[in-house]
């Protein structure tokens, strides 16, 4: 039938000693650096049973931190998703003057240490910043308040969606969008029915990464938050605060919550992925669909 079908999988080769060695090194590396420490956090948390954990997780300071982290993420992720898609389309499709500069600029939050981003925000919005006093006079406090934390989180997680979507847009090309236009589709409808489906995996991956980063951001947030327990303390700051107050159970319990949230995000993604694939392809073509997803 069609010539561009995925080629049949190469026959399984006998495992050579070198392959085994390489695999062993990779797995040991992962185990030592990733699995063991994370596992230990879980173990230490429940060392003295579940009671102290429940107690730590029902304190008002923890609950406030948990709530704040959720709020910040719920604001930052849609912002960056929408901005990311718009920026990617602008850079790839419209190629504005100074596009190359803008393109480099978008990576800045990755290149800069989050601490620097936090300090930069204070220089603009702080009490002695460029527009900070102006805003404060109107009763709007940014630094040492929730808006500053949201801003810092948006900034540090800004590149994810853009970077995931841009290569997809390039790869898809303009053919399908042009075809839709000749069939009478306006630009919004073309975006919704042609462009968005084509880039949706990039958007989803970008959103996942943005979410994970938003939940876990520490450096920039720690500079701008002021760390007022129960007010401007996010989960990561709460972990640090508990740790330094000689409350290991409180610190580990909050860490476990953070880890579980990240896990839930990743799990949600894989469920979504398999669900979409099953809906899109009939039974007989599922293997091909899986192959495509892997690519």
């Amino acid at each position: 039938m069609s010539s561009d079908r995925a080629p049949a999988r190469a026959p399984r080769r006998r495992r050579s000693r070198v392959a085994l060695l390489v695999r062993g090194i990779a797995l040991t590396y992962l185990a030592l650096l990733l699995v063991l420490p994370v596992l230990l956090v879980f173990v230490r948390t429940f060392e003295r049973g579940i009671e102290p954990v429940i107690e730590a997780l029902s304190r008002p300071a923890f609950l406030a931190a948990f709530r704040l982290t959720i709020i910040v993420t719920v604001i930052a992720v849609p912002f960056n998703a929408i901005f990311g898609v718009i920026a990617a389309i602008t850079l790839v499709r419209h190629r504005p003057r100074g596009g190359a500069f803008l393109n480099a600029l978008i990576d800045l939050p990755f290149a800069l240490s989050p601490v620097v981003i936090g300090l930069a925000l204070i220089l603009v919005y702080g009490k002695f910043g460029v527009i900070g006093p102006e805003l404060e006079a109107r009763g709007f406090q940014v630094i040492f308040a929730v808006p500053g934390i949201v801003l810092a989180t948006i900034l540090v997680s800004l590149p994810f969606v853009v970077r995931e979507v841009m290569p997809l847009l390039r790869e898809v090309g303009t053919d399908q969008e042009e075809a839709a236009a000749t069939l009478g589709s306006g630009s919004w409808r073309t975006f919704r029915r042609i462009t968005l489906p084509a880039i949706r995996w990039g958007v989803i991956y970008g959103v996942i990464l943005t979410t994970a980063r938003s939940l876990g951001e520490f450096g920039a947030v720690s500079i701008v938050s002021g760390k007022l327990s129960g007010k401007t303390e996010t989960l990561t700051l709460h972990v640090e605060e508990r740790f330094q107050s000689f409350d290991p159970v409180g610190a580990y319990a909050a860490s476990v919550v953070l880890a579980l949230m990240a896990l839930a995000v990743l799990l949600g993604m894989s469920v979504l992925q398999s669900g979409v694939i099953q809906r899109r392809f009939s039974r007989g073509d599922r293997r091909q669909a899986a192959d495509q997803a892997v690519r």
Binding site: D175, Q176, E178, A179, A180, T182, I194, P197, A198, R280
Partner: peptide, 11 residues
């Protein structure tokens, strides 16, 4: 309009 590479809506 029929495009050189047909521009099918792949999804």
């Amino acid at each position: 309009f029929v495009f050189q590479h047909y521009a099918p809506f792949r999804h």
